[in-house]
Computed example of a mutant assay.
Amino acid sequence: MLSSDILENLAIPTRRKRHRRSRKAWAAGLALVLVAAGLMLWSSTRTHIVNLGNERQLNASGLLQKWAEGSVIVMIRHAERCDSAPGPCLDDPTGITVSGSQAAQRVGEGLQRLGLDGADLLSSPKLRTRQTAHFIVGDTVTSEDWLEGCESGFAGQAMAHKRAGHNLVLVTHNGCVDHFQRTLKVAPGERESGYASALFVSVDGSGKARILGRMNEPDWRRVLASAQR
């Protein structure tokens, strides 16, 4: 029979292996906890987009009050493009579809419910944005090149065109809206803007911008009608 000392010596490597495995498991668990904590911290620093198509969220956002104060910038993506949709074109193939023109009219009805008196309206010079703006307001809208460029300075340009006490309506492109959202640290998965969707941003007296939320085209009339009863 083996002596107790020999058995003890034989058991030592096994205990050491178990100890090393335990330490590795503990280190792996700690790494997972640190990664999860880092992701939570990162997420807490991101701006999340509220869906203003929900009546409760619309009321909680403060949009109606901010709009009445004239302290809002709304960025509207152009309506459905003719060159990337199966529907019939309005006319020029570089413009919007017939369905897109109808969607733009519905957005215009929603904006009229909010009130456009005193608002400044601008569009990108691209045909699809000029057509969208026309169907939104029923008239020609002034075009400016910076609304087409979608460069890193877009947010600054938008803020510079915002007059105190006057809401600013910008008909532009997904890339431009994306640049503005990047500036305000919107989470990557929440930056995509659908056709004729509107991103609402409030601007306070010190010029600080805060995203109020996004309204998708199908929700305009229903939500605004119920919110203003």
Rank of each mutant, 00 (worst) to 15 (best):
S101P: 03
A196R: 05
V107N: 04
I73H: 01
P125G: 04
V50Q: 12
A85R: 00
I12P: 01
S202R: 14
Q102E: 14
I73A: 07
T45H: 06
L7G: 02
S143Q: 09
E217V: 10
L30S: 10
R56M: 03
R46E: 10
R128Q: 06
M215A: 11
T47K: 07
L30E: 04
E151I: 05
R113G: 01
L168W: 02
T94F: 06
T142I: 08
S197G: 12
T97I: 01
P93V: 02
E217K: 04
P218R: 09
G115H: 06
Q131H: 06
D117R: 12
V201R: 02
I73Q: 05
H78E: 09
L10E: 13
G110N: 08
Y195S: 12
N9M: 13
A27I: 14
G189A: 12
R130I: 01
C176T: 11
N167I: 07
A164L: 05
G156D: 15
V201G: 01
R210Y: 06
H19T: 10
R56L: 05
H78F: 07
E148Y: 14
R18F: 09
V74T: 15
A68T: 09
L224D: 04
I76D: 02
L224A: 08
Q157C: 02
A27M: 12
N59E: 08
